[in-house]
Write a protein that binds this DNA or RNA. Structure first.
Lengths: 351, 351
DNA sequence: GTGAAAGCGCTAACAG
DNA sequence: CTGTTAGCGCTTTCAC
């Protein structure tokens, strides 16, 4: 089972390993006949150079690591697809590091992020992309932030839609504040005045941004935000159901439109509304954020803010690639504009 | 920017690199005071041993590669989550190789599979998991199969829910034939006699198996399969819409129930039915296969065959781990039983 | 307990 | 054009 090496090839071809290396890498001219002889041997043994040895010398592995909280959340596969598309043609391979937020203690998640950060650097990845997890914290602990900053000195890191205090990181973000404004304005434009906001976590910066955009738009239109209509609790379909259910159970006036922190919550909200005997959008309008594929598949199709996930991934990959290849003038911050996608879940309020 | 090595640590600690290595790996007793001195230096410099160099010697990398066709299809993240959970605690890291079937020529996909297979072996992964792509072909070309067999001699491969001719591979599969029978029987038990089957590709083995189970159950119940009600075309929501639309547009009798090749097609079918003014399940029952999260979120919630994706992933990881650690007696074939999940999209036919 | 030295498989000067 | 020779950073005998 001993695998063949450049030495085996060299010996059988009656050349030195250097020459074999030369044909392998096209790094210097080799006589056609010699090259052919070597190539034949390579084919014969299906020889594949050991990338470990190669990387050990070259100090580049062509591997990049991506740390994300939950591959099961459809948002992440979308940006992953973008990353992959872009990175593949640049010759990178991906380490997928899922910190499995969905089924565990939050503390474990951060612990696992640290762990992966360590593994990735040991494995000498050329770069790291982080999305979700600690970088989404509105107030990330100094320790956790510093750890990342420290690693960033040795290997380039790009943060997607997040940030960390205490140091400057390369980041690719979507302007969610402006996006949330647009969503809210769409609703206001439709004639809604009683608008609720549900989902997300107050300690997460994405939630803070989305809520800020919501408030700004409401204020600009001279509408009051009813604080009892602003409820957080998570980003899942189930949380959406609960939050919407609670909104509907309340005494007194009901909102005619609900801005949800993301699509999953939006979907949950629709389910809850339907279960309560309401019709969307006739009785209540619902919006999401992300524009995951599911958003277009739900009935009614969800009006949402497209975070342009795929584009986000591609951009991050591009920035990271620049960093790795030490191009200069790489922007610290790259901002993408989200896009309002109007579908079927929003309409003017009844009467 | 030069990174610190065992030599740097050794020099500063006044010991040899061997001793440093010993404390790093706990591979031999080291005097407590010496160990402490070294450990302090390690902490001081945040020294991390270079995994490339280590793997070069150890001939094990702790990396496993997973080749899949489209991370964007919710089925795959689910099994990935299972893989990850199981593999993480065994100390593996994942290479994610998405061959991007969703937006390209099928030929390109297979080419990319080959490419990734090559990259993974060069990078000396300890094992490879394949799911989707060529291993789902009902009749896979000899060349493409042989390529995988060849690699399998050098590094262990586990196929999930697929197979390849010409050699014996370690596989983890779900009994889809029995599963499709169960789904069909559920419908028949509800009183349906006019049942259609839509979705999938006739050249893919999963489609063949699901259709076979469908036919078996129909036959056993003495029901005829109307061939004009068996239509293939893909696994996406859009194909489901189209196929269902075509079924509904047909002259004459309409099916009262539709067995879909997977959940996405099922969701598309529901959309088409609703668009055509029908109500599900009152006017037509719809079933899926996979049990992706979305299946439970659609309205009405989709009755489906759970392929137990997460469990599938875990099992595959376990088998691969056994293979890597050269346990003997590893079963060539591991079969999981799928599970019928009855939700809201099926009901007795309207009189 | 600890050190010296020989590699793991490859690339990259440096000579010729 | 091609061969020789150092390493890349680490682990691992084999001595002491």
């Amino acid at each position: 089972m001993k695998s063949v090496t450049v030495y085996d090839i060299a010996k059988e071809a009656n050349v030195s390993v250097a020459t074999v290396s030369r044909v392998l890498n096209n790094t210097a001219p080799v006589k056609a006949s010699t090259r052919q002889r070597i190539q034949n041997l390579i084919d014969k043994y299906q020889f594949q150079p050991n990338a470990l040895a190669r990387s050990l010398i070259k100090k580049a592995t062509g591997m990049i690591g991506i740390i994300l909280p939950d591959i099961t959340n459809p948002f992440f596969p979308e940006v992953l697809a973008g990353l992959e598309q872009e990175a593949r043609q640049a010759g990178y391979t991906f380490f997928l590091c899922d910190t499995g937020s969905s089924n565990q203690d939050i503390k474990d998640q951060y612990r696992r992020e640290s762990q992966y950060l360590g593994i990735l650097t040991e494995k000498q990845v050329d770069g790291i992309i982080m999305i979700g997890g600690r970088i989404d914290l509105h107030h990330c602990g100094k320790e956790m932030a510093k750890e990342v900053a420290e690693i960033n000195k040795r290997v380039p890191i790009v943060l997607i839609n997040g940030n960390l205090p205490g140091a400057a990181f390369h980041r690719v973000v979507v302007d969610e504040i402006a996006g949330a404004e647009r969503v809210t304005e769409h609703l206001i434009g439709l004639g809604h005045r009683d608008i609720a906001f549900i989902g997300g976590y107050p300690q997460m910066s994405n939630t803070v941004r989305r809520l800020e955009g919501f408030r700004t738009a409401m204020e600009r239109a001279g509408l009051a935000v009813r604080e009892e209509w602003v409820n957080h609790g998570g980003f899942s379909v189930n949380r959406g159901k609960e939050l919407m259910g609670r909104l509907l159970d309340r005494e007194g006036r009901r909102p005619t439109a609900v801005v949800c922190a993301n699509d999953l919550v939006g979907i949950g909200a629709i389910k809850a509304a339907v279960k309560a005997g309401l019709e969307v959008p006739r009785d209540v309008s619902v919006t999401g954020v992300d524009d995951v594929p599911m958003a277009a598949n739900i009935i009614p199709e969800l009006t949402t803010l497209s975070l342009r996930c795929v584009e986000l991934g591609r951009t991050a990959a591009r920035v990271l690639h620049q960093l790795i290849s030490k191009s200069d003038g790489v922007e610290l911050l790259t901002t993408l504009q989200p896009e309002l996608v109007v579908r079927e879940s929003t309409a003017p309020p009844a009467k």
